[in-house]
Computed example of a mutant assay.
Amino acid sequence: MDKHLQFKDLWAVILGGSGGFGFAAAEKLATHGMNVAVIYRENKAADKALKEQLLQIAQSNSVKILPYNINALDATARESFVTEFAAIAPEDSVKLLLHSIARGNLKPLTIKDNPSDEAYNTLSIDDIQMTTYAMSNSLLDWTKSILNAGLFNNDGRIIGLTSEGAHKYWEGYAAVSIAKASLESLAKYMAVEFSIYGLKTNIIQAGVTATASLKMIPGSEKLLVMGAERNPFKRLTKPDDVAGVIYLLCTDEAAWINGSIIHADGGEHCR
């Protein structure tokens, strides 16, 4: 089969698709004939550049790529998207919902040497709740909205992204770590309870990758060096590496993978 026909007439909805894993997945899936709705939040200049890139990918692969510069965490924006998208995409056509939102607080729990600034520079409960909704619980809201609109394919896939930081200490990563741990737990329950609709829910744990979001983490330079040193292949994970696994999870052969955390890191987690 021509690879450009593999996912003909099917759609991916990518939350957080302006860069990193989300953008790489959009590009990869498009090469296999999948149409893509890319949801992101960018300023005017970045929005224009991204739309030009997405248009080029769409034209090169004869697919539709629809850019939506909206706040994926806003309920009204989400429902407006679903209504608009339902008028474009046929029922049962969403093969993939990919959650790749990277939005959260990178603060310490406490500041020992500067207590006067602690209230402004340390992690609050509100910070944790915002980060957890952005990087975990919002997946459930998006899943329900797409499902209620009758858009999911009867062999649909839901994929979230986690990191090793969910299980070990990274400086300034507490809120994101909590969110990623929550996402892993949520996906387990979604894998069971949404199976009645034919949906398979999995999480990918990517290796250390030099994305814009990772570079915002305090001490990220050390993470990047250690990641390359630990990796059996002596290099960092690339967004394309993870996009390949996302593609594989969308294939018919991956239909029996459900409720799993899949390492896409070249064996980095083994050390």
Rank of each mutant, 00 (worst) to 15 (best):
A254D: 09
H263F: 13
T83L: 13
F152S: 00
H269D: 10
A191G: 13
N69R: 06
Y133L: 02
Y68S: 08
A77N: 10
W11S: 02
K234V: 07
H4Q: 15
F85Y: 15
R41C: 12
F152H: 01
I159N: 02
S260K: 14
A75C: 10
I88Y: 11
K8H: 15
Y133Q: 05
W256T: 14
T131N: 05
G16T: 03
D113Y: 08
S116A: 14
E229I: 08
H263T: 08
R235T: 15
P108N: 03
F233I: 11
R271K: 12
K8S: 14
E253N: 14
L29E: 06
A49M: 11
L236E: 05
Y120V: 09
L249A: 04
S136P: 13
A206K: 04
E171C: 00
H99N: 13
G172Y: 00
G156H: 01
E91I: 12
L139R: 02
Y197I: 05
L214E: 01
S100Q: 04
A37S: 11
H4D: 12
L109G: 03
Y40K: 01
E164K: 09
R78N: 05
I261L: 09
F233D: 08
S93N: 14
S124T: 15
A45H: 10
K3P: 09
T201Y: 10
A30W: 06
Y197L: 06
N258L: 07
R78D: 02
I257M: 14
S60H: 09
L139N: 03
V13F: 10
I204P: 03
N258A: 07
V36Q: 01
Q6W: 12
A26V: 03
T209I: 11
V94K: 01
I88A: 11
K28W: 06
Q6P: 04
S177C: 06
A87C: 07
A58I: 06
A166H: 03
L98I: 10
P239G: 07
G172H: 00
N258I: 06
G266C: 12
S100H: 03
D74E: 12
L10D: 06
G104W: 00
A72D: 00
A187E: 08
A86V: 01
A187D: 09
R157A: 09
L15Q: 11
L249P: 02
M190Y: 10
K238Q: 14
T201H: 10
K200N: 13
